[in-house]
């Protein structure tokens, strides 16, 4: 119950580190990565809810190794890996949410890749959890992961065309002869 006692009170949804503390922490982590990886490590991006470190798409795996194995950091868990399509910028962002059980600390990494030919280093060898998460991003957003052991579609059938979570995805009219729209009694077409 130690954890609960420390942060008692307050019905605010999330208990977070104070702003100053967080800033210092993430700046220090960025400096550490920058020392080892050089220009591949970008700036710390401010956000209204948390900061993230931007990394080049071909340095993710090395950065991930460092983050996991550095004794002061020990990010031993990949909590989430999501992709998001930004057609306006012509980019797809991959966001890694890391967590360290040892130090109870979170960190967000962000990788941008070109929309036309999205290709990012796989972190499967660092965190096995990434295997399925990357397959999901590949399936729904079409991002390929360099060095992934088994990059297949995971949720949609093998013969599906397109990547539905892209913003410009057009839903198919039919799949194996099954039409995907249904005329409603009111004459409104579904699926749009």
């Amino acid at each position: 119950m130690a954890g609960a006692a420390e942060c008692g009170g307050g019905s605010v949804a999330l208990v977070e580190l104070s702003r100053v503390e967080r800033d210092m922490e993430i700046a220090a982590i960025r400096r550490l990565l920058h020392d080892k990886l050089g220009a591949a490590v970008g700036v710390v991006e401010e956000g209204p809810h948390y900061e993230s470190i931007r990394i080049d798409d071909d340095a993710v795996e090395r950065a991930a190794m460092l983050l996991r194995d550095t004794p002061e950091l020990r990010f031993d868990c990949l909590s989430n890996l999501s992709g998001c399509d930004y057609p306006g910028r012509g980019a797809i962002d991959i966001v890694y949410d890391l967590y360290s059980y040892e130090f109870d600390r979170s960190l967000v990494l962000r990788v941008s890749t070109r929309r036309g030919d999205p290709l990012v280093d796989s972190v499967e060898r660092v965190w096995p959890a990434a295997n399925w998460l990357e397959r999901e991003v590949f399936d729904l957003l079409g991002v390929r992961f360099r060095g992934h052991s088994d990059l297949r579609r995971i949720l949609l059938p093998e013969d599906w065309v397109g990547h539905p979570l892209r913003k410009d995805y057009v839903e198919p009219e039919q799949y194996h002869g099954i039409s995907t729209v249904r005329e409603s009694m009111l004459g409104i077409r579904s699926g749009s």
Partner: peptide
């Protein structure tokens, strides 16, 4: 308990 949200600390 460890990253409490809502009113779980109570």
């Amino acid at each position: 308990r460890d990253r409490p949200y809502s009113v779980y600390p109570d």
